[in-house]
């Protein structure tokens, strides 16, 4: 070619990744944990489906939310579940939350040079009965936090959480102080508000909302009684309880 454009071989590379939108979010309370995600799955401007779960029950007391490239996310959840099953075979009990967190970091880092293109948020109850949230980056860096948002609307939701959960830019009344943990009804309101707002302002968020609530053993379920669309997922009468709340979000 006169312009020299074919002098070097042209490489068109297959791109093994995609980005499927949506947002996830988790907040830890003193003795509970709330993990939520919208159910829209999209690619570009197309909505692929209005119901594709991003939040998954792992054990009686652990829930994993996965956001990013949906195929990687589903595969990753499937693999984590199988690892947990092997743990159950070996130890005849469920893996504790902090161990699941470390397992996830190991599994993510194992793919360091061909990463799972997913942001994970793990929520649940620790062995000491406290509510916990762990957040991860795609290659396994992780930390325990009180709250975290990830995904398409992270930049909209996280500042809101910083303000409402961590009380950033709020000054307590003289002589008063901010609480370390919010009560469950407040947390649920914040979660719902986060998603309705994100739905308004982000095209990749909407359609449906799934909120998982894990309550530590012995905690009252009173505060959930009045919530619509509630379904219990626990299989044991005693021990930690797990619920899911399904709500609609705007579909436009």
């Amino acid at each position: 070619m006169p312009d020299g454009s074919y002098e070097r071989p042209q490489q068109r590379q297959f791109n093994p990744y995609s980005e499927n939108g949506g947002t996830i979010l988790a907040i830890a309370g003193a003795d509970f944990s709330v993990i939520a995600g919208d159910t829209r799955q999209s690619e570009g401007y197309s909505i692929q489906t209005r119901y594709a779960p991003k939040v998954f029950r792992l054990t009686e007391r652990a829930v994993l939310a996965v956001n990013g490239f949906a195929a990687d996310g589903n595969m990753f959840v499937k693999k984590v579940k199988q690892r947990l099953e092997w743990y159950r075979h070996a130890h005849a009990k469920d893996m504790p939350l902090r161990a699941i967190a470390r397992l996830i970091q190991t599994m993510l880092y194992a793919q360091r040079f061909f990463p799972y293109y997913v942001y994970n948020i793990l929520g649940g109850i620790e062995e000491d009965g406290t509510g916990a949230v762990y957040s991860f980056d795609p290659v396994g860096s992780y930390e325990r936090e009180a709250c975290r948002a990830a995904g398409a609307a992270q930049s909209l939701v996280q500042p809101f959480l910083d303000n409402q959960i961590y009380f950033k830019n709020q000054t307590p009344a003289p002589g008063a102080s901010h609480p370390t943990h919010l009560p469950l009804p407040d947390v649920l309101s914040i979660v719902i508000d986060s998603f309705t707002s994100a739905t308004e302002r982000h095209i990749e968020v909407g359609d449906g909302l799934e909120i998982y609530v894990v309550l530590a053993k012995g905690r009252s379920t009173q505060e959930l009684a009045s919530i619509g669309g509630l379904q219990e997922l626990s299989t044991r009468a005693e021990g930690d309880r797990m619920f899911v709340i399904r709500r609609d979000l705007k579909k436009d």
Binding site: S18, S46, Y51, A70, A71
Partner: peptide, 25 residues
């Protein structure tokens, strides 16, 4: 349900691939 070359999956009561996802769906 749907599956493509990336392994992306989803299901819905109506589905279309390719151009159809824009025009027919």
């Amino acid at each position: 349900a749907f599956v493509d070359l990336l392994g992306t999956t989803y299901s819905a009561s109506s589905l279309a691939t390719g151009y159809g996802a824009h025009i027919a769906l």
